[in-house]
Amino acid sequence: MSNVNFQLHSDSYGRLVLTTENGERHEGVTPVRAFPIAAPDEGLSLVNYEGHEVGWVDRIADLPPAIGRLIEEELASREFVPEIEQITEVSSFACPSTWQLVTNRGQTELVLKGEEDIRRLSQTRLLIADSHGIQFLVRDLTQLDRQSRKLLDRFL
């Protein structure tokens, strides 16, 4: 268990309030992941409404459960990055094209404006932005089925 040098609670408006060990109080604190894709549970900055860091968390798992829960709930309310599990259909291999997907949040579609909206994060990880700015994650290309990889390869 790491040494936590702050207290965190939710006020009556649902905002996070951080109190440092010297009694300094910061209202409306927002957790921000340092590495949201590569290491989502490590390295979180707690920033005030002006964007200044007022706290740091090495690992969520090392926090007292109540504080960890508050941070996780706040992150979940702001983050929406569905993971692509299967690409079932692509309207065209020319852009823009409409993709039919199965994600960890259900079936949906995305409109790919151009190949430049597919970003390779690592050898096996991709981030795909749709025409509405929603980011879709392919956590591991090798875990996609053969047809999905074949369709995706046409755009890479």
Rank of each mutant, 00 (worst) to 15 (best):
V4C: 12
F6T: 03
Q7M: 10
S10M: 13
S12A: 15
R15K: 13
L16C: 01
E21N: 12
E24L: 12
R25K: 15
H26F: 13
E27W: 06
P31E: 01
R33I: 10
A34P: 05
P36T: 00
I37T: 08
I37W: 06
D41Y: 08
L46D: 04
N48D: 15
W56P: 13
W56A: 09
R59Y: 08
D62C: 08
L63W: 05
R69T: 11
R69M: 15
I71T: 02
E74T: 12
A76R: 03
S77W: 06
S77L: 12
F80W: 12
V81A: 14
I84Y: 00
I84R: 00
I87W: 06
S91T: 13
S92K: 07
A94T: 08
P96T: 02
P96Q: 01
S97I: 05
Q100D: 08
L101S: 00
E109K: 09
V111Y: 04
G114N: 13
G114E: 15
I118D: 03
S122T: 04
R125G: 03
L127M: 10
I128D: 00
I128V: 05
S131L: 09
S131W: 05
D140K: 01
T142I: 10
T142G: 15
Q143M: 15
D145G: 10
R146H: 10
Q147D: 14
D153C: 08
F155C: 01
